[in-house]
Design a protein around this nucleic acid. Structure first.
Lengths: 136, 136
DNA sequence: GGCCGGAGGTCTCTATGTGAGACCTACCCT
DNA sequence: AGGGTAGGTCTCACATAGAGACCTCCGGCC
């Protein structure tokens, strides 16, 4: 919890002094959330964590992603330097995606999130059932 | 990094054996990402981490959130048991939001993510500039 | 009494994000 | 010649997000 406290302090510092607000421009957290805060990015990184994979493999691994979103998510992650893309001149050409060192460095922080998800998702589920069943 | 490896292993186990796919139904990670993986939830939790805050305070803290999304994000987080909502019978009534124990337990994992964001967002920025400047 | 303002919302309309699925190119196999 | 495969792009339809008007309840001011 001491780690958490220092991180919160750091986060607070990004609040601009005049308005006490989290400005998108000056807040790395906002910046990073814009990168990996979309629907598929984290899932993609986790899936690529086990091994480099090709376009079709990724589609089969995350079955409810559409081709369009798969392409777009991969492009965005490549643009942000989290994954790399290799084209092999086979016929037809095959393309392999793999985590860059920067992408791999994200695994450790994400691991603790997954850990939390694992331990606490039943609590969340219970809270949800309770909330939905409560009278208004 | 060893933590990351075990989390990845655990994540892999949620891939269904027959199809090697990350089924939404059986994957807590998917579940949790659906809760806090939206545009504002993590920011909201971080903002509430410093202290309980009222509707108007939160709006001023996260200035580019709309009233509608603020209301909805708060409702969703309340539904999932991550925050609690207290109405004080002042005139006009004031409403205070604060993290629940479950919500506070999320701070530690989120802290490591913020840590990463802090250290690495310049790398991401650099990668992006490089990508955008590259010829096709 | 009538008007203004604040707190915490809801409602409506438009802009953006997401998904489904058709299509494309180049090649191989039969 | 027809069909299959890999990795996409394109178009259309729909779901979600944002902007901003509006609402209620009250208290204070003149």
């Amino acid at each position: 919890m001491s780690d958490a406290l220092s991180a919160i302090e750091r986060f607070s510092r990004y609040q601009s002094d005049d308005a006490q607000s989290v400005e998108p421009v000056h807040c790395p957290v906002r910046d990073v959330l814009d990168c990996i805060g979309d629907k598929w990015s984290i899932l993609m990184i986790m899936t690529l964590a086990t091994r480099p994979q090709r376009f079709g493999e990724l589609r089969r691994a995350i079955r409810d992603i559409s081709k369009r979103m798969l392409t777009q998510t991969l492009r965005d992650l490549e643009r942000d330097g989290l994954i790399t893309r290799h084209v092999f001149p086979t016929k037809p050409p095959s393309v392999e995606y793999c985590l860059s060192p920067l992408g791999r460095s994200l695994l450790d922080p994400m691991a603790s999130l997954i850990d939390w998800a694992d331990r606490r998702y039943s609590d969340i589920h219970a809270a949800r059932v309770r909330f939905d069943g409560a009278p208004l």
